[in-house]
């Protein structure tokens, strides 16, 4: 297996994540797309860590990305729950209170 194989898998994950981000109405589903994107970034970091420099710093950065993802999901779900309480909908395009 070469570096390119892993990069291709990661690119596919990223493209699917962007697709989910763009086409889903449900906020939780959009969050799932963001998780896919973060996972693809992590896969890239680990692959470069093994095939590129050969030291462990890529894996270290991947751990930081996991931390950021956990924090992001917690805050985002809080926002989604508040939105649901306010508007009785989990759909993002119905959250248009600020629209004039």
């Amino acid at each position: 297996m070469t570096l390119q194989h892993y990069l291709l898998v990661s690119a596919a994950l990223f493209a699917l994540g962007v697709l989910g981000l763009l086409t889903r109405r449900n906020a939780v589903n959009v969050l799932m797309g963001i998780e896919l994107i973060l996972n693809s970034a992590n896969l890239n970091l680990v692959a470069f860590s093994r095939y590129g420099t050969g030291n462990l710093e890529g894996q270290l950065f991947a751990v930081f990305v996991v931390v950021i993802a956990a924090a992001e999901v917690a805050v985002a779900l809080a926002i989604v729950l508040t939105l649901y309480r306010l508007r009785r909908t989990p759909n993002l395009d119905e959250a248009d209170i600020l629209k004039g």
Partner: peptide, 29 residues
């Protein structure tokens, strides 16, 4: 979970994948 603007989303993500995959494949790492 409904899907909106499906066709533009598909076009954008396929384009992204093509660019990324070409870059990853053709670069001499």
């Amino acid at each position: 979970s409904e899907v909106t603007q499906f066709l533009p989303g598909v076009i954008v993500s396929i384009g992204l994948f093509a660019v990324l995959a070409l870059t990853a494949w053709r670069t001499d790492w």
